[in-house]
């Protein structure tokens, strides 16, 4: 349990990995705000749970829309004043070889994974600069490091996020703001990027840990990165993949 509740924003927290991250911060006693394009049964469960009364805020918002993204951040600031942690989790994957990839799919992936992340980070950084500190974690992917056939655009956005992490860490280090990436391996969530069972079984066979990841594997790494005691750790890409890329 944290000594005093922090205010955490987790984008795309209504399902899958994002929901696991939200749950982790609710469990650590923090105030958690999240958004996604639609409400899910998991969100309704959190909203109705008295244990999270006044500690959970969900707003339906498409952060690829800058006005909605700005309004979401403003709603969090209006409710809790300051933002201590931003977890940029919202993302979308579209698979297909590049030569047949539609321009619309390229735009969708880049608009959400990259442009929306940059915009919401800018809004949150202004709050962190104003109150003097914070932590940002960008959810990246091992495919941004290794590449993956059929995920060219997705992997490009994740590699770009890692570059964003490093530059922003350099910009903000003197203001007690840390910025890191978590390069996630393959998880047992619906975001396994359209991989079929044969592909997933092959990944498991090649993974030293012998299993796919759980959202909590990633959430624990994020908790480590945003722990105030670890504020000398910034500008890094932490690979959490069961050893697949080692």
């Amino acid at each position: 349990m944290s000594s005093s509740p922090r205010t955490i924003i987790v984008t795309g927290g209504s399902r899958g990995l994002g929901a696991g991250i939200v749950q982790s911060f609710l469990d650590s006693g923090d105030r958690v705000a999240s958004c996604s394009r639609s409400t899910t049964p998991q969100v309704k469960e959190w909203e109705s749970d008295p244990a999270y009364a006044d500690r959970f805020l969900f707003i339906e918002a498409d952060i690829a829309d800058r006005d909605q993204s700005t309004a979401f951040v403003q709603a969090v600031v209006d409710k809790w004043g300051t933002i201590d942690v931003l977890v940029n989790n919202a993302g979308v994957a579209r698979d297909g070889i590049l030569a047949l990839f539609s321009d619309e799919d390229s735009d969708t992936v880049i608009d959400l994974n990259l442009k929306a992340t940059i915009h919401i980070t800018k809004r949150v950084v202004r709050n962190m600069l104003s109150h003097g500190g914070g932590s940002i974690v960008n959810i990246s992917s091992i495919v941004g490091l290794t590449g993956y056939r059929g995920l060219t655009v997705y992997s490009a956005t994740k590699a770009a996020l890692d570059g964003f992490t490093r530059s922003l860490a350099r910009e903000l280090g003197s203001r007690k703001i840390t910025v890191n990436s978590v390069a996630s391996g393959y998880l047992k969530t619906e975001m396994s990027h359209g991989l079929d069972d044969a592909q997933l079984n092959q990944i498991v066979r090649r993974t030293p840990a012998g299993r796919l990841g759980e959202p909590d594997d990633i959430a624990r790494a994020i908790q480590f990165l945003v722990d105030e005691r670890n504020n000398w750790l910034t500008g890094q890409v932490l690979v959490v993949d069961g050893g697949l890329t080692c």
Binding site: R126, N127, L129, S130, E171, L172, S174, R175
Partner: peptide
Amino acid sequence: SLETAELSAILED
């Protein structure tokens, strides 16, 4: 430039 950004954010607040 960073102090200017801080000033900008505080003025907005």
